[in-house]
Design a protein around this nucleic acid. Structure first.
Lengths: 242, 242
DNA sequence: AATAAAACATGACAATTGTCATGTTTTTAA
DNA sequence: TTAAAAACATGACAATTGTCATGTTTTATT
């Protein structure tokens, strides 16, 4: 089911203050001095299609932050079926999925969606920093609480909703998180194939295709992977809760 | 769908050092002095059948710890369907479900399963304590990371597995978390109706009943709600991953 | 102990979703 | 710019799960 291509690629120490880095919630609460310190210990790595940032079962040595692009967090079952738990956006923490805080090995695989840039830091160093920074620790607690909420909301949707409703929820939330307003609707800034969607809502690819075909006919969405446009967010959200 | 019975019941300040309280992971890392302080600010409340500890949408003023018994954390959809996200055992934190760390209102309802005893403390007081106790804060981070893992594992199971596999997973994990060894198997120490199980794995009550009937025929389990026994944990676990 | 209320059970049937097979279109890479 | 590979598409059919109806058994309550 899964090929295993080359591991990583270009690595380089984080140069000074890369643009936008102070906006990352989990870093911006730090004092200028601490932030400088943390950035000094971080390494920036780029990943592209077909690569892995880490794989399920790997030991959790680092904690990561998405800098640019999006990363998906995936779990797979013994018979090769895959399930995408979450799409991480710039600023998001993952390890994976923020779970290195507890365990010794990654419970899931982290894959880039297109080209991404990721910051990483030795787990121990990060923990040490948190221990000395109550504000940062509280921010992480808040962040994890939020992520737990999301995960439970997702479980609820998987448990109670039909396939088309789950897909509608997914598209609506992506539109709100990553959407770019356009003349004829909201374009998603992540490349999303029908297969990707299927993995995110727990259905087969064929089912995702059929449902998307219906959505298209009903003028709720248009386009495919490279250019997916949400044409009627309101109606999509309504469908999600019907 | 849901009746709304009387709110709470007997309240009393926590007397001295109630037995077993020092074993609670989130309290035992505190210094004796801090623990004393925290316990002084906690209130113990008892709840029984048909009551609510708090309801979805209520403001999150407190954070809670289960002292005795078990508590279930439930979300419901507009059309009245319910989904049980997690069964909390003594020592578990909930707010609900540990999510008060982020939000302003409870994303789910907390209900006692049978008679329970719950400790609670003003959210602000707890946060203040955490800010001054790096060890406690790190423990909470670890705890939340663990909970996030669990929630994602649950999402994976809901997304990829069949109803019978999900039910097998549930029974296996409950057997390991709350089971009591007995001559002919492992008895679950929580009362669990077919309906409860159905809500936990995202199926209808009828489906849960049918699957349990099959499990019974195959000598994997025996008994009903009040006295549910897992007779063949190994085979149940195997079925869960087939 | 009697009665009411949950919980458990089962059948018939419908709706949803998966499986497999096959073909077209679009995107990617040589 | 061409092959090759993904992605998209659709039909026929099977498997899974839900719905509704109805009845029995067990458990609570007075």
């Amino acid at each position: 089911m899964s090929k295993r291509p080359k591991k990583s690629s270009a690595e380089q120490p984080t140069s000074g203050l890369p643009l936008g880095l102070n906006q990352i919630p989990l870093l911006k609460i730090l004092s200028a001095q601490d932030r400088q310190q943390v950035l000094g210990e971080m390494t920036e790595t780029h990943y592209g299609k077909g690569q892995y940032i880490f794989r399920e079962g790997d030991p959790t040595e680092y904690f990561h932050i998405v800098k640019e692009g999006s990363v998906k967090c995936v779990k797979s079952s013994l018979d090769g079926k895959e399930c995408t738990l979450k799409v991480l956006m710039p600023g998001d923490l993952f390890c994976c999925d923020a779970s290195a805080f507890d365990g010794a090995s990654h419970p899931g695989t982290a894959q880039p969606m297109g080209d991404v840039s990721v910051l990483r830091m030795k787990k121990e160093a990060y923990f040490k920093m948190l221990r000395g920074n109550p504000d940062a620790a509280m921010e992480v607690i808040r962040y994890l609480g939020n992520r737990l909420n999301e995960a439970q909301e997702k479980a609820k949707i998987l448990a109670l909703d039909r396939a088309d409703q789950r897909l509608a929820s997914l598209l609506a939330s992506l539109a709100e998180r990553t959407g770019v307003q356009e003349p004829n609707g909201i374009r998603l800034s992540v490349r999303l194939t029908r297969q990707d969607m299927a993995n995110m809502v727990g259905v087969t690819t064929e089912t995702a295709i059929r449902i998307m075909a219906r959505f298209k006919k009903d003028r709720l969405v248009s386009g495919t992977a490279a250019r997916l446009v949400i044409r009627d967010l309101a109606r999509l959200k309504h469908l999600a809760s019907t």
